[in-house]
Design a binder for these strands. Structure first.
Lengths: 241, 241
DNA sequence: AGGATTTGTAACAAGACGTAACGCCCCCGC
DNA sequence: GCGGGGGCGTTACGTCTTGTTACAAATCCT
C-alpha cells in the first residue's frame, strides 16, 4: 500500500508532541499536531486524517469531550492518551468512543503497535491476503456479505447468524489458512475493549459450527489447532496460485 | 475552493433573470441564463454547471418536469423558484428531487444563503456531514425537510411524525453509517439537558420504526448495534449481487 | 496405562432489546 | 377551569444473545 497514513497528535505538552511526531514520522507516518480542540478542528477541516492520538487532559475542552464530539460527527478513529491506568478510566475512554487507549507514560513501541492495530481495524485495506478486498467474501459455496452482514449458504439460503457469530466468522474468513489464537480472535471479533475469558471464543466457535458446518462434530471449515487456536480452512483450489 | 461556481438561471421573466444574474455575479458566481427547458439543455451541454436555479412556471415544459428529468439524467443540484408558498407546493418540490426551493418573491440574501448551502453540500464535502445544514435531507427515496419539519416517503406521501420522532430521525439521518449511543441520541435529539433513562430512546426508536420502516421487525433504516446503540443506514445504491 | 492439559458443550446467568401497558403532563377547545 | 386526547417517559416482561461454569471427552506426555 503506497499511501502513508496521516496521524494527528493532539497534546498540550510540547515535549510529548515532539516525541510522538518524531517517532511516528520515523515509522513512516505523516504527522500533524495540535495543542487543543480548536487547533484539532482546524486541522481536520484541512486534511484527511486517518487517526487521532488525543490527550485526555487538555486546556479548554478535554480529550474525552472532544472524543465524544468527534464520534458524533465523523468516523476518524481515536486513540486516547491518559495518565491514569485504572480500569474505570479505561472504561470511560472506551465509552466515549475511543478505539483504544494508551496509558501515560507509554512505551512508544506499544503505542506503535496500537496505532497499527487501529489502522488495520479501521482501514478498508485488505490484510495480508490480497484476494479478498471485495465486500463479499466467498468460500466453498458460501457468500459472506460484510456490508449487509448476511451469509448465504451454498444452496443460496440466508443463514441467520447473531452479531457475535457473524463477527467471529468474518475474523476467521479474513484470515484463511492462518491459525488465530483465541486472543487474536477476541481482538478481531470483539475489538480490544472486549473483556472475556478465552473460553468464550470456544463457545462462540461451537455455536458458529452448529450453524455452518454440515457436521459440527467433524468440522470442515473451522478447524481446531490444539494449543494454538482455530484456523479457517475453506475449500479452495489450493494448488493454484 | 478557489474556482467560481457556475450557476444557470432558468426563468422566462426577463426582469428576474437580470436581477438574479446581476446579483449572483456581484457575489462572485459565473452565471448563465436560459428562458426555457430548451435553452437550459443547450447551456448544459456546453458548460459544466454547478447549480441550476429553476423557475417552477415556464413556457413549454414546466420547472417541475424539467427538474424531474434532470434528476434522472444528471446530478446537477437544483433550486426551485416558486410563486406559491403553500405546503403542498413545497412538498411537490421535494418529490421531484429539488435540493431546495425558494418562494417568490424572494429575499436575495436568503436566496444567496441557500445557493451557498446547496453548493457547500454538493461540493465534495471534506468531513462527513457535521457542518452541513442542508434544508432537506435525502435518503433512500425519503425527503426530510428540516425547516418545515416534514417527511415525505418514497411514494410521495407525507408521513406525519411527532416532534420527538422527528428530532430523533434528524439526529440519526445527520449521521448516516455512524453508530450513535443512546446517550448521544438523547443529546442530539433532546438537547443536553434532557434527563431520561436510555430506554426512552428505545421506545422512540420503536415508534419511529413503526412509521418509516416497511417491516418494523426487520428494520432497514435504523439498525440496532448491540451494546452500542443505533445506526442509520440509508440505502447507498451501489451494491451488486 | 495414568494423570495432566486442552477442548467441546450443556446448563445457567446476566445483560440487552423490543414493546405492551400505564400514567403523567401539556395543550386545546369548550 | 375542566375534560380529553396525544406525546412520551417509565415500568415490566418476554426473548435473544453471549459470557461463565462445570464436567465430559479428547489429546498429550511420560
Amino acid at each position: 500500500m503506497g499511501t502513508q497514513a496521516h496521524i494527528l497528535v493532539v497534546d498540550d505538552d510540547r515535549e510529548i508532541r515532539d516525541l510522538l511526531s518524531r517517532f511516528l514520522r520515523k515509522n513512516g507516518y505523516r504527522v500533524d499536531v495540535a495543542v487543543d480542540g480548536h487547533e484539532m478542528r482546524r486541522v481536520l477541516e484541512g486534511a484527511r486524517i486517518d487517526l487521532i492520538i488525543l490527550d485526555r487532559v487538555l486546556p479548554g475542552k478535554d480529550g474525552l469531550t472532544l472524543c465524544r464530539e468527534l464520534r458524533t460527527s465523523s468516523r476518524v478513529p481515536v486513540i486516547l492518551l491518559t495518565l491514569l491506568g485504572a480500569d474505570t478510566d479505561r472504561i470511560v475512554g472506551l465509552e466515549v468512543g475511543a478505539d483504544d487507549y494508551v496509558p501515560k507514560p507509554f512505551n512508544p513501541h506499544e503505542l506503535l503497535a496500537r496505532v497499527k492495530a487501529v489502522l488495520r481495524r479501521t482501514s478498508d485495506l485488505p490484510l495480508q491476503s490480497s484476494f479478498q478486498k471485495a465486500p463479499i467474501l466467498r468460500f466453498g459455496g458460501w457468500a459472506l456479505d460484510r456490508s449487509r452482514r448476511r451469509l448465504a449458504s451454498p444452496a443460496g439460503a440466508i443463514v441467520s447468524l447473531t452479531d457475535g457469530e457473524f463477527d467471529l466468522l468474518i475474523a476467521l474468513a479474513e484470515h484463511p489458512q492462518v491459525v488465530l489464537t483465541r486472543e487474536q480472535l477476541l481482538d478481531l471479533s470483539r475489538g480490544r475493549s472486549a473483556v472475556a475469558f478465552d473460553r468464550s471464543i470456544d463457545m462462540q466457535v461451537t455455536r458458529l459450527r452448529r450453524r455452518i458446518e454440515a457436521d459440527p462434530e467433524e468440522p470442515e471449515l473451522i478447524k481446531t489447532v490444539r494449543n494454538k487456536g482455530y484456523m479457517f480452512t475453506p475449500e479452495v483450489a489450493s494448488e493454484s496460485e
